[in-house]
Structures are given as C-alpha cells and as structure tokens.
Amino acid sequence: MEACNKMFSSLWKVSVRNLHHNMKPKNYPKVNSEDVVLNPPRYGYRKQREPLLSQSVTDTLLPSEVIRQKYIEAGKPAPIKFLPKSDIIARKNLIQLHERIELGLPHFKVGGKKVYFPKQRICLLRPNAKQTPYQAKFLVPKNMNRLDLRDYLWHVYGLRALNVTVQLLHSRWQRGQHDLGRYRGPQLKKMTIDMAEPFVWPEVPKKIVEQQQEQREVQFALAQPKTGSDEKKVSDLYDGLYKGNPLPNAFVPANFRRTGAGELGQYKKQVAGKPDRDLVSKYLGL
C-alpha cells in the first residue's frame, strides 16, 4: 500500500512537472492592440432613470404652472417645489409691469420720502469688465437705499431701474502723507441697475488719455525729491518749457562775486553822481 502511494505521488509529480502557472507568450490571447481601450468609461453600472416630467418643459418663462398640470395629467404627485403659486403672482406682476411701461407710468410703487435741498452726489460710473450694456453702475451716498435710487432715476431722468443691486465697498487703509500711520478711507456704496435699453459709454479720446498720462509723468518727475547738486538741475520736461536754453557760466568764485558786486555798485554810483558833483564844484568855483 505504501509502495502504491509512493508510486502514485511520483507519477503525480511527473505529470504536474510541466504545468506552469504563468502563461507563455505563445498562449497569449490574439488581440489587435488598436482595438484595446485602456481605462474604458465606467458607465452602465448606474441605474438609468427616465427623464423627469418637469424636465420636458423648456420653452416657458414661468413653467411651474405647466409642470403642475403635466403631473396631474400623468396621475403623479407634483414635487413640492412646483406647488407654490408664486409664479402665477410673478406672471401677473410681469403683465402689470409691461402694461405700466406701455402706459408710461412708473413701474413700481412710488416712494413717499421727501428730500429738501439735497446736496448728495450720484455718479454714473464707467462699466467694469463683468457688466453688460444693459447694466449701469452708480456711486451713491451711503444713506441711500435701492428704492431711493430707483425713485431718483425715474423722477429725474425717466430711467427705469428694473433691478437694483447694492455693493457696499469696504473702507480701504490709506497711508498718511507725513507719518507712518494708516487711516480708514471712505466706505463707498455703489448700486448697479438693470435697464430696459442698452447704454454704452463713449470711448475716451486718445488725446485726453495721452495728455493725462504725460501730466502724470510730469507730476511724478516733479515730485521726486532733489538733493545736493540736483537742486540746481532744471527739469527738461515739456520740450524744455522750464529749462529754456540757459547760457553758460564763467568761473567766478563766490567770494569775488560778493566783493566785486559791491565794488561795481560803488563805481556805478560814482559815475552816476559825477555830473552833479561837477556842477556843484563849478557853482562854488572850486
């Protein structure tokens, strides 16, 4: 029995000797490398749902009324977000707005605030990059709210502000001129309105921009502190407007200039007084 077992195990070993776990290249699957897709997209494992009923409505401005109707027709409960009647109110308001615009009436409830002798300024600002032509931005006083601006624009310019958004800027730190302190600058309030008609600011003339640029450079050059020999230097700005072709100096020491000017003054005095002295001496017979 034992011998039988030994024989079996040896036979087994012989039979298994040529079996290899690793696949040999000749046994590789025959696949064209161009047909193989590395990292294939992993879809198909999610459940594909059929599109929602609400998604089918795409061409309506205030769609929840239509969507609600669709759900009723399909015998399904409408989602909660389509249940409120707000868009009916919105539609009513929109129709009302169009009517008032056509009639030339104010499109909002006119405010009752009375302002006497106003001295505040409201500036129309140039647009920034993210503004559309249908928007305009104003710099307004800080105590003004968006309703005030809407009223103001309607009553002064007849401009309809269809929507007003407020930007209250933080006050910037400003450095003092003559000290190391820093102070809070003003807090600015800006408001952006939506308009019915577009408005594009005219381009600033190139000449004015260049002038301002030059002026700025000049200001910068003049603001530079001058020390030592540079104090005598006359600036060469504006094509020599300041400089003006100065004449060359001769070398005369400061000491000689001081004494010489005095002596020359004395001399001139003498020469000027000579006729008078002659006259007197002639009169006196000296």
Partner: peptide, 27 residues
Amino acid sequence: VENDTDLQKFHAERNKKDRISIDKYIT
C-alpha cells in the same frame, strides 16, 4: 516752446539775470 515768443522772452530775461559772467563783478 519754439514759437512761443512770450516764453522765449521770459527765458531770455531769466537766463541773462541768472548767468554768472565777469562783467557783473568788474568795472
């Protein structure tokens, strides 16, 4: 600056006044 006569006149006067030359200090 070239065709502004008033400016040139002003410059000429200023240059004459500011210039250091010996004839201002000797007889």
